[in-house]
Design a protein around this nucleic acid. Structure first.
Lengths: 153, 153
DNA sequence: TCGCATTGATTGAAGTTTCAACAAATATTC
DNA sequence: GAATATTTGTTGAAACTTCAATCAATGCGA
């Protein structure tokens, strides 16, 4: 058992600011999206990933990976999005275990509206209140974090 | 209705890196804490805030504010922590509507153990993979974000 | 090819969070 | 000071996520 390396004052301050800020940001963005379009961030993320995929279609496992969600969670959530008519599921030609999720026409139209409001909120509470150099630092840092998490799995 | 100001390429890259990285970070920290101590980050946060309060005690409303949680959520969560014997609730002397949540002796001892593992994980996946200057930028940026969210409520 | 492990996705139950409604105590207004 | 409004905290139900179990299809080794 090795000695605990506690955070120094500056590290602690920055870490705490991040924890609080990120929770409140997620909260306000979620609330905004839910109030205006009845979507959570997780659902929105799914629609975005699908919209960017070839043919606006992805296998469930890939979609789960892109959207940083468990497969189980994705199954439930896609079921809900399917009920709303925003996504459709179909079997995958090659591998008959696979299931494709596809953004419907209606889903795409819906997303176009939601994206406008969402980007405005992202600007209001994130991009526009952060110094551009600091934003670059955030991008760098969280890319490194994601890689490290990936590596450890 | 004003024209949508989309993000430019760099902003979009940084924002996306943040979204993905922060979700994965929260995920791995949650998993670690749950596996080793049976706590979620939200529960851990509550214990930390209590541990730092005078007499290790706070009113529910203050605790909710510090821990960035809704009062309802806090009620439920504190009920669970109370069952585990980590927190105790008592009435507030001055204002008889108020309820004090207090960290028990056992809760404090428990937190001391959990904090060691948690800080190690925070280092492994966050602090130690980020350039110190970038960490400072993150602290600055998210303090601004938190303030902006606060302002808009 | 047969058996067995692995992969892909779903399911239902248990646990957690959100939402709206509520009750009790305190503040405010007239 | 009685009536009304606000604040504090809890509650139960609905919505969502997690967890473990399951099923079907595929891959693999003998």
């Amino acid at each position: 058992m090795t000695e605990t390396r506690w955070l120094d004052a500056a590290q602690q301050r920055d870490w705490r600011a991040y924890v609080e800020g990120s929770v409140r940001l997620a909260d306000v963005l979620d609330r905004d999206l839910k109030a205006k379009h009845g979507l959570t961030m997780a659902e929105y993320e799914i629609l975005v990933r699908l919209s960017e995929a070839p043919d606006r279609r992805l296998r469930m496992a890939e979609l789960a990976e892109f959207a940083s969600q468990s497969r189980s969670r994705l199954s439930h959530t896609v079921a809900r999005l399917e009920c709303k008519g925003l996504v459709a599921r179909g079997t995958c030609g090659a591998d008959r275990r696979g299931v494709n999720a596809e953004l419907t026409h209606q889903g795409f139209a819906f997303l176009e509206q939601a994206a406008r409001d969402h980007v405005a909120a992202v600007r209001e509470f994130f991009v526009d209140v952060i110094d551009p150099a600091d934003l670059g630092a955030i991008g760098r840092a969280f890319a490194a974090v994601a890689e490290q998490v990936q590596k450890a799995r």
